[in-house]
């Protein structure tokens, strides 16, 4: 089965075993097993509706908000099952941060956007440390130089690319262990996309990063490992260079050569 490809790393940050997701009667994910480790950026690729975003959202239980969605199988974070009743979902989402497809800054100031997560989790005991967290996060998101003089301006007044980097800064500010990115560049122009990709390179190593993308060139550029999804199954998972140059599966080959998708 697929398990031999999925369990390639020895000490995974997150691992999924035989995960199935149902929307009512319809099965959206049909048994996916995968390991995600700290050192590699993992890209999920595949045609629209193949379930890659759905699977991504099971990793921090964002699917919980959909009443008809049901998840089976095991997903662990540091060996701990995130769907067990002992797991605090609020803390899980702090540890596994998320960046969404459409930039969605809060309609608050740039400062408050970044500070929000740190505030609600009580990460900064005083204003000076909170300022530090905000500055560090914005620096790491590559946005500091553009916004340092207008931190009190509304986050929604920034350009699309800046908004997305603000959202990444907001995710970083909570100091998560894993960052999930759901097609973070699909609403951005090529220059903004390049900046985000560069940013992903810099964040690698400190956070485990999973990125869903439509764009195969992007997957090739930013990731070290790639998983190809098709019709709710994970067809192939392996080193990005292998997937793009020497895929084992027929369907993967067809997809990356543009035969369908």
């Amino acid at each position: 089965m697929l398990d031999n490809t999925a369990t390639s790393s020895t000490n995974p940050k997150m691992s999924a075993r035989d995960v199935k997701v149902f929307y009512g009667d319809k099965q959206a994910i049909k048994g996916v097993s995968i390991d995600i480790d700290m050192d590699n950026v993992v890209a999920f690729i595949g045609p629209s509706g193949c379930g890659k975003s759905t699977f991504l959202r099971t990793l921090n239980r964002m699917n919980d908000t959909i009443p008809i969605a049901r998840v089976e199988g095991d997903i662990t974070l540091d060996g701990e099952n995130i769907y067990s009743s002992k797991m605090d979902v609020v803390q899980l989402r702090a540890r596994v941060g998320m960046v969404f497809q459409k930039p969605n800054p809060f309609p608050k100031s740039i400062y408050d956007n970044v500070a929000y997560g740190a505030r609600i989790h009580g990460l900064a005991p005083n204003k000076a440390e909170l300022d530090q967290i905000v500055e560090n996060s914005l620096v790491r998101a590559g946005l500091w130089n553009e916004v340092k003089d207008r931190l009190s301006d509304s986050g929604t007044a920034l350009s699309g690319g800046q908004q997305q980097r603000l959202c990444i800064a907001r995710a970083i500010a909570v100091d998560p262990e894993v960052i999930l990115m759901d097609e973070p560049c699909s609403a951005l122009d090529p220059i903004a996309t390049a900046k985000i990709e560069e940013l992903i390179h810099e964040l690698r190593g400190r956070y485990a990063i999973v990125i869903v993308t439509h764009n195969m060139q992007q997957a090739a550029r930013v990731s070290q490992k790639t998983a190809f999804f098709h019709l709710g199954t994970m067809v192939e998972y392996g080193d990005t260079s292998d997937i793009f140059t020497n895929p084992r599966e027929e369907r993967t080959r067809d997809y990356i050569t543009g035969r369908y998708g």
């Binding site: 989402r93 809060f106 989790h121």
Partner: peptide
């Protein structure tokens, strides 16, 4: 989603 995503 944004708020839930940072653990609110």
């Amino acid at each position: 989603e944004a708020a839930m995503g940072v653990g609110a």
